[in-house]
């Protein structure tokens, strides 16, 4: 950082002492969202489609692109899994299970599909994951009504 600016800010701190702002998370309120999982599935779908389109090509540029796309697919599939598990363990409550008795199984299957889409380049598996995520997001939306 510009040393002059740093010096000015340090002098400013003598007049107005910095107060603490917290970047840890101890505010218990309970707001969750499903946008991230939907976005993640869309990313996985896009990467899967692009990878499938490159089948049979082996020039170095294509290999590089394949590596990057596979890494992105891997990353976002894992994010989807993480987000689903957060909803499962932290958001859904016993009363939700009473209303949707197969909720555990749905999340479990969706999480397994996240692993499947990482391991494969299979648009059918991605479609199954998308449907599973939509179902869970639908349940989530219902709980908000």
């Amino acid at each position: 950082m510009n040393s002059l600016l740093y010096s000015i800010l340090r002098k400013f701190e003598l007049i107005a002492k910095p107060t603490a702002v917290y970047a840890h998370c101890d505010v218990p309120c309970g707001i969750y969202e499903t946008d991230t999982v939907r976005h993640g599935v869309e990313t996985v779908k896009s990467m899967t489609d692009k990878l499938a389109a490159l089948q049979g090509k082996s020039d170095i540029s294509t290999l590089n692109a394949i590596a990057r796309m596979a890494a992105t697919k891997e990353e976002w599939a894992q994010r989807v899994k993480n987000e689903l598990l957060i909803l499962w363990t932290d958001y859904f409550r016993p009363e939700h299970l009473q209303k949707w008795p197969n909720l555990h199984e749905r999340v479990w299957k969706a999480a397994k599909l996240c692993s499947d889409v990482k391991r494969t380049v299979d648009s059918q598996k991605v479609a199954e994951l998308s449907a599973a995520v939509d179902e869970i997001a639908g349940i989530f939306a219902e709980t908000k009504k």
Partner: peptide, 12 residues
Amino acid sequence: LPFSVHTVRGHS
């Protein structure tokens, strides 16, 4: 003032 300075506590 239009701005303020703060110390951040935590890792998130």
